[in-house]
């Protein structure tokens, strides 16, 4: 009986150990991103948020979804999705930053002068 129980506990560790560790890491990252979101980082808040989101996603993909231990074919499918999404973003952004004056998005003039969105609509180069 005791031997069985010990086997059971070993199995439980094998079952829970690494997954729980990843879970703890995910929780720490969640705490970190929440904290950083309220810190004045002078415009780097978004970068921090999405870098942490990427780290969390990688943990889930590589360990929970077992991509690190799977045949390359599965990674290829995932990569295809990401590469095509990247293409969608990249080519769409050949449009918006390069619009001419008449092609930029305008909101209704009366509301535009209310102050909150007083900067000229459309993209401005840094």
């Amino acid at each position: 009986m005791s031997r069985n129980a010990r086997d059971g506990s070993i199995t439980a560790w094998h079952l829970w150990g690494s997954s729980a560790l990843v879970g703890v890491a995910l929780m720490l990252l969640l705490g970190l991103t929440l904290w950083l979101a309220y810190e004045p980082l002078a415009g780097w808040n978004a970068v921090a948020s999405y870098t942490i989101a990427l780290a969390k996603a990688l943990l889930v993909v590589l360990i929970f979804m077992k991509l690190a231990r799977s045949p390359w074919l599965l990674s290829l499918a995932a990569l295809a999705g990401l590469v095509w999404l990247g293409t969608l973003f990249a080519i769409t952004f050949t449009d918006y930053p390069f619009r001419q004056v008449g092609e930029r998005i305008q909101t209704i003039p009366s509301e535009r002068s209310q102050g909150a969105d007083a900067r000229p609509p459309g993209w401005t180069f840094p």
Binding site: L34, A37, E39, N45, S49, Y50, A53, V60, V61, M65
Partner: peptide
């Protein structure tokens, strides 16, 4: 299930964390 989780991982900073810093 994990993919649905990952989507939320990215929705979270997108919808909840933007513009919080002073």
């Amino acid at each position: 299930w994990h993919l649905v989780d990952i989507i939320w991982i990215f929705l979270y900073p997108l919808l909840y964390l933007g513009g919080r810093a002073p």
